[in-house]
Design a binder for these strands. Sequence first.
DNA 1: AACCCGGGGGG
DNA 2: CCCCCAGGGTT
Length: 360
Amino acid sequence: MLNFSKKLIDWYLQNKRALPWRTTRDPYYIWLSEIILQQTRVEQGTPYYFRFTSTFPTIKALADADEDTVLKLWQGLGYYSRARNLHSTAKKIAYEYDSIFPDTYKEIVKLKGVGDYTASAIASICFDEPTAVVDGNVYRVLSRIFGIDTPIDSTLGKKEFKALAQKLIDVRDPATFNQAIMEFGATQCKPKNPYCLHCPFNTDCIAFQQGKIESLPYKAGKTKVRDRFFNYLILKTPSAHTLLQKREEKGIWQGLFDFPLLESDVDLEKTELIAQLDLFSLKGVSGSVAFKSLKIKSIVLESNEPIIHKLSHQKLNVKFWVVRIADTSELQTIPIADFKKYAVPRVIDRFMESFDFENY
DNA sequence: AACCCGGGGGG
DNA sequence: CCCCCAGGGTT
């Protein structure tokens, strides 16, 4: 096509949104925005961008924070490894690179939590390096305009689209080109109901000409969702304390806190739960503590129906059980009033918003 | 190559 | 209900 880049950039200059990170080329802010925006819509990520830039105005401020503080600020955004890698990389840049952000794609892509897309975005936007970004928007725009049906979730597809984007990029202004193609995908060449009728490419676009807009981009993979059954035990002592435990192991919500969790293969009734509690243990002050060894006063299921919490590839069936126990020195309990200081999964935060600890 | 990792919103 | 979002890491 003749002058793809010029058409695209002309469209962009007329239609771009005023986004907060578009007022700077400081690699710290661009990097931060890119990490926040991974698999995340602009509207969802923007409040977090403001939160982070105001709490941590410099990369050193971020580096010097506790990981728990960073995770708390990230709470609710999901994909928490992004926050852990963000913090780890901030420390590295602050203390090994004297707070100087690396300035080439080759060096940037080595950073933890930074892949091909993010490195290309930072290198082009901050340092004018002509390396093409390929995100979900770019797949959509290129697959449609050029009529490419190679699966975007295949190795071949990734290579093919990267090469095409790299061929098309405007080496005179890669920063604008990269942002333009993403903006175009986000607001014009949308997944559903794109604005084809007044699209600057509608005479070129193969998908539009052939009526294939709905079927492109093509994805081969199918994500299968597995069912899990979570029983959270909300301990309550006479002094209004409860127990939160940090999730250290790999898996969902690593680094966040939650209540003692008994996972089962199926949904449990109260008698079944009590049977399984025989073998259940908690993280205690010194080693694990058998649930049986506690002085149980009552166990009450908070709501009859499990709360359904959907993740991309898991369907969580969550029940909250309130367990009144006697005071014990075996457990490092916290005042329930301190709950809000901890980074917790969304499903727990939401539950606690409408839960009255006093009633039990 | 396949799988894992959150949460929200649009249609 | 399904799909997608300024993807990256691990196995």
